[in-house]
Write a protein that binds this DNA or RNA. Structure first.
Lengths: 215, 215
DNA sequence: GTCTATAAGAAGATAGAC
DNA sequence: GTCTATCTTCTTATAGAC
């Protein structure tokens, strides 16, 4: 990785731990293994580093969104995947979403940075909200819409059903951001949540088919 | 309000908007209507102001917790209140919780400050988690436990049921902290969430009794 | 592109008069 | 308790050699 990119990477790590104002240009330079003045050959000033991180993440989001839409379109075609979704697959879906958000290094650091900086700039608040609330709800909602159409799940209100699925995942996620040691507990709760979600929303015939494990 | 208290109040406002590091002692003094050096007659240094805010809030929390337990104990005795709880009362319960957290000035500023500072100190993370996640879940859980015992609601897992009730409220709350203009939308979603929660968890005879409004 | 030296300014905190 | 004046330290950023 070249120096310009390493600066972004180390800056993101520091910003996500201490917040923009508590990170000094010299701290970033130290981690990269250069002196502070050298850093100004790569970025105009400290703010430009922050802006570049946001810009880079916006790029990633766009790529992701593109990928998701393609998957979504594919998924709509291969609807039989969703015809046979089991409770265990639903648990996997939720757990994968949770663990990706929690453990993916770049996502995690970026989310923590936005958590700290969100009130500093309206645009940052919007980015946070879109990336960690609105977009997941939109994507999951599309998926659950198909599951309802397939007769796997049953509801009059897919939007609320999606919130019932995602809000607990979100709450456990931000809990683990602040208390990482509670991840095992969060994973247990996550599984219990999805089993109960399945009981509540699965069509009766599907409920009978699903195995009902005791935790 | 005396100067010492006004300092805490103005400092909390500023900390909740900009974060500790971006607030200067002179800013706080300005708002109080004194010069920065005068402030040092009331507090040893900037950190002492922050600590005093935390300390004051811990006191309030203790008082609240005391009050809630008394209410809880009373509620357990007056169980007939919960024998007749309607869908509309459940909506009120959720909306009141939501609006109190969102609009109570002190609570709101304190929560925003902790949101910004939570990764700076493990203790702050704990305070946040306790106050805005664990304690609400614990209190609501107690309440729902009684509703299940009374046969109003039905579930094998009160803990998860409580998360299903509270997690959407929490998600909407932190959404409004960052995008206050979305409060009307949040209130609509909140009501729809609780109506659906009621449909999912109310005993069949109670479901029939409840009016099922279309939004 | 990286360094040393340093300018420029911001911000926390103290001294001492009133 | 509040003020003005000031000290000190920290931090960003630039200048200019290599």
């Amino acid at each position: 990785m070249d120096t310009k990119q390493r600066i972004l990477d180390e800056a993101l790590t520091l910003f996500s731990e201490k917040g923009y104002a508590n990170v000094y240009v010299a701290d970033i330079a130290d981690r990269v293994g250069i002196k502070a003045p050298s850093l100004y050959k790569h970025y105009k000033n400290k703010q430009a580093i922050f802006d570049a991180i946001i810009e880079e993440m916006n790029q990633r989001f766009l790529e992701q969104a593109g990928a998701l839409q393609i998957n979504g379109a594919d998924a709509a075609k291969d609807a039989d995947i969703y015809q046979t979704i089991s409770e265990e697959q639903l648990i996997d879906l939720g757990r994968n979403l949770f663990l990706y958000f929690l453990h993916d290094d770049h996502t995690r650091r970026f989310r923590k940075m936005l958590t700290i900086e969100q009130f500093h700039d309206k645009e940052l608040a919007k980015v946070y909200q879109k990336q960690y609330v609105d977009d997941p709800l939109s994507y999951q909602g599309m998926l659950f819409g198909m599951l309802v159409a397939s007769g796997i799940l049953q509801t009059d209100n897919v939007e609320i059903m999606t919130i019932h699925f995602y809000a607990p995942i979100y709450m456990l996620l931000v809990m683990c951001d602040r208390e990482p040691e509670r991840e095992p507990e969060a994973l247990k709760t996550l599984e219990a949540h999805i089993r109960q979600f399945n009981l509540l929303y699965a069509r009766d015939e599907n409920k009978i088919r699903s195995r009902r494990k005791k935790a």
